[in-house]
């Protein structure tokens, strides 16, 4: 488990990002789409666990990223898009936390309930959909992030290395990349 800084320290003012216009996010979209399609292809059990919540729209708000993500984990037409923070987004569930906390939770290295208890994670809207997504992701062995990054070729591996450098916990997993 990651060491926990004090609650007050974690709630000091976070950096305020400028609103990134949608046009600057355009290059990200095909990459994100590739990621989500790959996961959908390789992890059919994830969607069985999601059940009806596969049709939900999850707004993923990594507070320290300059944009937000919209995920629809539909088994047939999965979608993951980057959106401007200025965009009016219609979603069922809003999940917010720091990038590091969200990524480590998706990868099964952080406990979602603990993040909620420490106020590092907040879910508004349809909580059941979010809990269901968390449970479905937690049932995937290993690191989805690593898997996805490696599949993206050299830039992906660089991204993973960078991520591991900020994330000292699982050295053995990082070495495997």
């Amino acid at each position: 488990m990651l060491p926990t800084p004090s609650l007050a320290a974690r709630h000091r003012r976070r950096p305020q990002w400028p609103h990134v216009p949608a046009v600057l996010l355009a290059p990200l979209q095909p990459l994100l789409q590739r990621i989500v399609r790959k996961v959908a292809r390789e992890q059919p059990a994830l969607f069985a666990r999601l059940g009806p919540h596969g049709r939900s729209r999850f707004l993923i708000d990594a507070r320290d990223l300059p944009f937000i993500l919209l995920l629809q984990p539909d088994p047939v037409h999965p979608r993951l898009r980057a959106l401007s923070r200025a965009a009016a987004v219609d979603c069922d569930t809003h999940i917010s936390g720091s990038c590091r906390e969200l990524v480590t939770m998706v990868d099964g290295r952080q406990d979602g309930d603990s993040l909620f208890f420490s106020r590092d994670l907040l879910i508004t809207g349809n909580l059941e959909a979010a809990v269901c997504l968390r449970n479905a992701l937690d049932d995937i062995d290993g690191s989805i992030m690593q898997h996805v990054c490696v599949a993206l070729g050299k830039p992906g591996k660089m991204l993973w290395s960078w991520f591991c450098s900020r994330e000292p916990l699982r050295g053995s997993e990082c070495a495997a990349a």
């Binding site: 609650l7 007050a8 208890f117 420490s118 106020r119 907040l122 879910i123 508004t124 909580l127």
Partner: peptide, 29 residues
Amino acid sequence: VHYDRNTAGVVTARLGSHVIDRFAPTEQA
């Protein structure tokens, strides 16, 4: 269960129509 966060960062936890608790921004949940 529903969580709502107001502009001051206070989170209200509801079970159905019943307010279960309210957490100030720096209060553990």
